[in-house]
């Protein structure tokens, strides 16, 4: 019989999140971010957090909401360009920031979930990113040693999911969510639609439920668009 992961909502899903913890949060820009879990973290007021997320949201949405309340001590990201408050906190030294190449960030999360402690990559060789890291040549090309990332809690957002924790993502809202789901000690998945067991085709599940400890259906999704680009009819 399937192991049931479903919880009532974001409050139950965030049970045990404490100040000082390391969290992973899926999403690329505002696409595929765990909106409901972020709102709950803001409400709980946990602080001194280390947040691993590709981006830092915008001033009034996504991780920007946690930054506004000064709940984040350190960010580990690849690109943080669209957030003035973030830039202010970083340049003033209030916020510690570790910027790492996007592919290395994805692979470090994947490695963390896959039991691989470290790996070599060519990305960042000869740059600030390589400072203090072991360099080794493979096939005549220099690579740097990058370590795996894990988190106390990983918060991911999927399109559909079931009580077993199986997840299906929609379009480019998949991004970092599958790797972060793998790397969380406790992975919380929020979904737009929690469907009955057996509804999702086992052939088409993106993230197997083994990586998910808690799942709930979000009550409402804003799904903001950062850059609305269209052709006029």
């Amino acid at each position: 019989m399937a192991i049931t992961k479903s919880v009532n909502g974001p409050e139950a899903a965030c049970d045990g999140v404490k100040s000082g913890m390391t969290l992973m949060l899926g999403g690329f820009g505002l696409c595929g971010i765990p909106e409901c879990s972020i709102a709950e973290l803001v409400k709980r007021g946990v602080d001194d957090l280390t947040c691993i997320s590709n981006n830092a949201g915008v001033d009034d949405f996504g991780l920007g909401l946690l930054l506004q309340k000064r709940q984040i001590r350190k960010m580990i990201s690849s690109y943080v360009g669209e957030n003035d408050e973030f830039e202010r906190q970083m340049l003033s030294g209030e916020l510690e920031v570790d910027l790492i190449p996007q592919g290395s960030l994805a692979e470090r999360c994947r490695a963390g979930g896959a039991g691989i402690p470290a790996f070599y990559t060519p990305a960042g060789f000869g740059t600030e990113v390589a400072e203090g890291k072991e360099v080794r040549d493979f096939n005549g090309k220099p690579h740097i040693l990058e370590s795996a990332l894990t988190a106390d809690f990983a918060f991911v957002k999927a399109w559909k999911g079931d009580a077993a924790g199986n997840l299906v993502f929609k379009a480019t809202a998949r991004n970092f969510n599958p790797m972060m789901a793998m790397a969380g000690t406790i992975t919380v998945a929020e979904v737009e639609e929690l469907v009955p067991l057996g509804t999702l085709s086992p052939n088409e599940i993106h993230t197997p439920g083994i990586f998910v400890q808690r799942i709930f259906q979000g009550a409402h999704y804003d799904k903001r668009i950062e850059q609305r680009t269209v052709q006029t009819r």
């Binding site: 820009g29 590709n54 692979e107 480019t172 790797m179 668009i225 850059q227 680009t229």
Partner: peptide
């Protein structure tokens, strides 16, 4: 206009479309 989807963007965070034969995948 009107067909934009918040879940379908490019690396510049702009709304885009997918061509026939397109595929989505994770960051790794």
């Amino acid at each position: 206009e009107g067909d934009e989807d918040a879940d379908l963007i490019n690396a510049g965070k702009q709304t885009i479309t997918a061509r026939p034969g397109a595929v989505y995948f994770d960051s790794a």
